[in-house]
Design a protein around this nucleic acid. Sequence first.
DNA 1: CTGAAAGCGCTTACAG
DNA 2: CTGAAAGCGCTTACAG
Lengths: 337, 337
Amino acid sequence: MKKFINSGRRATITDIAREVGVSTTTVINVLKGRGSEVSPPTSAKIMKVVKRVGYVKNLTASALASAPSKLIAVVLAGTFPADARQRCLEANPFYGDFILRLEHEARHRGYSINLYSGEEMEALPFLLQRNYDAVLVLGVSSPQLPRLIARHGVPQVLVDSFLPRGAFARVCGDEALGGRLAVDHLVARGCRKLAFVGDVQKAPAALIPNLRFGAARAASRTAGRPLTLFTTATSFDGGVAAAARVAASGCDGVVTAADVVAAGLVQGLRAAGVRVPQQVAVVGYDNLLVATLCLPKLTTVDQRLEEKIRVAMDWIQQPKPRAVVLIPPVLVVRESA
Amino acid sequence: MKKFINSGRRATITDIAREVGVSTTTVINVLKGRGSEVSPPTSAKIMKVVKRVGYVKNLTASALASAPSKLIAVVLAGTFPADARQRCLEANPFYGDFILRLEHEARHRGYSINLYSGEEMEALPFLLQRNYDAVLVLGVSSPQLPRLIARHGVPQVLVDSFLPRGAFARVCGDEALGGRLAVDHLVARGCRKLAFVGDVQKAPAALIPNLRFGAARAASRTAGRPLTLFTTATSFDGGVAAAARVAASGCDGVVTAADVVAAGLVQGLRAAGVRVPQQVAVVGYDNLLVATLCLPKLTTVDQRLEEKIRVAMDWIQQPKPRAVVLIPPVLVVRESA
DNA sequence: CTGAAAGCGCTTACAG
DNA sequence: CTGAAAGCGCTTACAG
């Protein structure tokens, strides 16, 4: 008892078995709640010792012995330029937020999470070096890594990864809907000349800013409104930098690729003497904390992160190999539009 | 080869030993770079197979066999009220930022990090269930958890945990200096009536807002300026909520307990028609991304997070049992003061 | 209802 | 320079 607690050596199943005078199998049966297989008195004796020594199962050993490790690897991909990964992760509070929420949900389901935010294509050794129950990959736009992971037989769930349907289990935001919600809201407010501000690239098409732009463009066509594209980095400064161009363009309604961009844009516009939302209305995307840290507070597309995480965890616990689900976002109207 | 890569079963040291026709000991000697103990031809043959099969060491097995697990547990304590943990973690972008930076530094040193942000006093089972090389605890204000951890023989480094000197290895910001830097800057700018805005509590004294307030008060006494305390939550809304009181007080220089609070305060003041920094100068604390997301950008005390993390990792790799170091913060002058 | 035994993949003395 | 063997703590058939 004291012996275990203070010795730096933790009590093991073997210790408990010896102390009670039974086999390790019996101890395990009790610990696993297979009560029916163990006589009540034996069971009680074992539980008493388990309590007394403060037994904690060694998941390292457990994982090695081919039981669930209760460990999930989380890969933050997000397709950053290699040299700017860390900077991008820090420029968009989305990632920190995501991790904190995921940890919370995972913990309540009995899992720990193990973080990896390095180079996407160097993730494989990381993923193979421990016995993960599953890997959750956030934001790949190429099937390369998922294919490698699959080839090695590691279960995976992809989040916000827009790949050809059917190959992998994926939980994604419904970006088409999100873009439409934003545009429709601006149109309903009477905006006549629309703009999109974000890090839109030639390729790959599956990048989030590209998808959001595509959705906004489609919706603006339907509404019969022109939409001008202003390309800028996914960061606050990116938003600030776009402000002058937007102001000069005469656009009166802006859809953005992310809240940080919208926050920067709003600040840049106001600094230039443009009133938001009276002269230019701005809609953000994500609904992070930062959406409420600016003046005016951002009207934004809430991507329902908790829901995404919940579904991803569901699929980790009950694998749905090639399932794809689009989580419909929701417009949160505040002050900027 | 193909057999290993595609079977879902990873090649093991035993596989390699068998393939080359040597013992596992020899394979290990080669893998560990103990070249001197193995003949060059044998070594070369082994390395060839290692490469060919894409061998990745199983750290789960390794950790069980009493080798370093290369796994670090990270406990985000931060002494939140139990019912509001998650909310507080999300209200202060500091935590997400901390994790991302820590992961980056740890990865470059060959470690993975395993996150825990649940109840402080329920962390023990989490910490004992795997073979962690060390645990990094952020922000405890009571020695209870560190004591438990020590009793179980797990190496630990505490960050920003202000406890009686000498009991644990700790890396902390020099809050006394930080408060002084802020106050001295305001005084030098000509502020006459100072205020402190933050979540200052009766007890425990070791809470970060309390320390920062204490430091600011000491410095303002030295400077012969009065300092009024405005208590408010550590969040953007907390800052906003304090603005009216600060404006009414006639104070012209404000030190805050955190950047989020400062950001909220600045916005609240401006909404009330107060010009920042002309009428009221505001200094933040932490130098997070959010400090640059407001208008005017925050002058703030940079706590030099990277440096803290670097030292903490140094001590995890080379334990310095009861060492204590205070990282001197640095004032970053921007626009708000 | 209970136990003996092999195995997970690596590491660590120790023997030769 | 190389190998045989025991051990880390748990799990999993299988036997009784």
